[in-house]
Amino acid sequence: MKSLAAAGLLLASMAARADAVDTLREFVRDVKSGKSAFSQVVTSPDGKKKKTSSGEFEFQRPNRFRFAYLKPFDQAIVADGQKVWIYDKDLNQASSRKMSAAIGATPAALLAGGDLDKDFDLKPQPDRNGLSWAQALPRSKDGQFQSIQIGFKGKQLAAIEIVDSFGQRSDLTFTDLQTNVAVDPAHFRFVPPAGADVLEQ
């Protein structure tokens, strides 16, 4: 009986973890827009240095999103469907890259577009911190990221954990996520302010 009970628990655990991948696929398929507050903690590869920031996130499929960092510095990452812009208000400096070169197998592709199974190898992960997790490993070996993990609370996106190619870790936590809501299209357009240094790649 004990072995049957153990097998039942194992199967239940595997089913729960498989659901995280299904939930991610459903999120990408069914959620066309959204907005949320977010906080981000970036940890150095040796774990000794941490930087915390926060702001607001919005997206509209396909391939339109905006990360507006409000603290500690005013910065924005804006994708308009053609280009991805990064703007630093304090430096009055903007840079842009073509969408095709900038998105690829990135966290933004998971949230705002992209082809999940083309760009990522998806695997369920054990539940932790009250969330169910799916891992997305970029299929491209020359990308900027080693791994991406996406945490859901029920069907709600709650967190993303990213390890980049240098071993730096970024933990994003989303709060008050609203899905399939109207998002102002103007938020996905970026015009460099007068006098800004602009670098186009």
Rank of each mutant, 00 (worst) to 15 (best):
M1R: 14
K2P: 12
K2F: 06
S3K: 11
L4A: 15
A5M: 14
A5N: 11
A7V: 13
G8R: 11
L11W: 05
M14G: 09
A15E: 07
A16C: 12
R17P: 05
R17W: 13
D19V: 07
D19H: 06
L24G: 03
L24W: 06
F27Y: 00
V28L: 12
R29Q: 12
R29W: 00
D30Q: 05
V31G: 07
K32M: 11
Q40R: 09
Q40H: 06
V42A: 14
P45D: 11
G47P: 02
K48N: 03
K49M: 10
K51H: 10
S53A: 14
G55S: 05
G55A: 03
E56W: 04
F57E: 01
F57R: 04
E58V: 05
E58Q: 09
R61N: 14
R61V: 06
N63D: 15
F65I: 03
F65T: 05
R66N: 09
R66M: 04
R66G: 06
F73V: 08
F73L: 07
Q75L: 03
Q75D: 02
I77M: 15
I77D: 12
V78N: 05
D80E: 14
K83V: 04
V84C: 14
W85C: 11
I86D: 07
I86L: 15
Y87L: 00
D88G: 09
D88L: 07
K89R: 15
D90Q: 09
L91D: 03
N92L: 08
S95I: 10
S96V: 02
K98N: 15
M99F: 15
S100G: 13
S100F: 04
A102V: 12
I103M: 15
A105H: 13
T106G: 15
T106Y: 13
P107E: 07
A108T: 08
A109W: 01
L110P: 15
L111H: 00
L111W: 00
A112D: 11
G113P: 11
G113Y: 02
D115I: 02
L116E: 13
D117Y: 00
K118L: 13
P124H: 00
P126F: 01
D127T: 11
D127F: 08
R128C: 08
N129L: 09
N129W: 05
G130H: 01
L131K: 13
L131G: 07
W133R: 09
A134V: 01
Q135H: 03
P138Y: 02
P138E: 03
R139M: 01
R139L: 07
K141S: 01
G143W: 01
Q144T: 10
Q146N: 05
Q146I: 05
Q146L: 10
Q149L: 08
Q149D: 07
G151I: 10
K153F: 02
K153C: 03
G154P: 10
G154L: 07
K155M: 06
Q156A: 12
Q156C: 12
L157V: 10
A158V: 06
I162A: 12
D164P: 02
D164M: 04
D164T: 01
S165D: 15
F166G: 12
S170P: 07
L172Q: 03
D176R: 11
L177M: 08
Q178P: 04
Q178K: 07
V181A: 06
V183D: 02
V183S: 00
P185S: 02
A186N: 12
A186Q: 15
H187D: 00
F188K: 00
R189N: 14
R189Y: 09
V191F: 08
P192T: 09
G195A: 14
A196H: 05
D197P: 13
D197W: 02
D197Q: 14
L199K: 12
Q201P: 09
